[in-house]
Design a protein around this nucleic acid. Sequence first.
DNA 1: ATATTAAAAGACCTTTTTGTCTTTTATTAG
DNA 2: CTAATAAAAGACAAAAAGGTCTTTTAATAT
Lengths: 140, 140
Amino acid sequence: MVYIQIQNLKDKRPGVAEIAHEIEAPFFYTAKIFQRLVKQGFVRSIKGKGGGFFLDPEKKDLPLKDIIIAIEGDELFIGCGFGLKNCDANNPCPLHHQYGLIRDEINHLVTSETIQSLALSSLKSNISLGYSRESSEKRS
Amino acid sequence: MVYIQIQNLKDKRPGVAEIAHEIEAPFFYTAKIFQRLVKQGFVRSIKGKGGGFFLDPEKKDLPLKDIIIAIEGDELFIGCGFGLKNCDANNPCPLHHQYGLIRDEINHLVTSETIQSLALSSLKSNISLGYSRESSEKRS
DNA sequence: ATATTAAAAGACCTTTTTGTCTTTTATTAG
DNA sequence: CTAATAAAAGACAAAAAGGTCTTTTAATAT
């Protein structure tokens, strides 16, 4: 999605093939994932010639956290580091406090960073994901 | 394993049933996991009456990181936050730097904390995993 | 209108993870 | 030696994740 937004900022709408290549993922697999993202309203798409994916410019910044929660739930943000079911402040697991600090930072990162903020800062620096400067790897 | 060590410090050797109950995991599933942990040398076991699991007191402190790497590899510790294959300092992904900070902290946590250190500090405070003070949950 | 392009839908298939159960082996108590 | 106990081994099976492919639908350009 960051790649899509980077391209959108250049007035382009990448398609599945281009995105799949960029993230080094299989074409059909990538396609299926974007079907879900479109259905969930995170991206929009246009079929046919000149079609492709794009982020609704009307919508406000989309934090990474929203996407993560929609795809894999909120375990990462509320769950116990040890995976225990009833671990909380009253009944803390051995890692409770230490892991809490890290979780807070993860929370902060994925809340403050958005698809749009990352795309913007990527454009302004030598950051990857805008037609990758290929590091001599084999394609799949 | 922290639970085992806590019990070991009380001169007990918990068995599968006891451990499974403590971590709220299915009996047979827990059993299979410990078969692997024993085979990999992280814990030891004794069969038959009075048997159970224990940590080799001869061995030095076991960092969480060693176990994580043995079970699921080192992706968490070296991989890109976006899962890109060729993301590095020269070709950084949009999240490279920010995620790097968090990864460093995760690394520090799982390197400095060991099964033994967690068991010890759990015994010294009101930390869970030493015959849990059941929070009225259903058993499986 | 028609041909072309590209995503959507959906049917499959493979692999991995998770979970269950039976049989075997080792240990101890009597 | 025998019975009881408890882990090891290994066969299965269900569910989830990962991946592939064909057909359909929508858009565009000629």
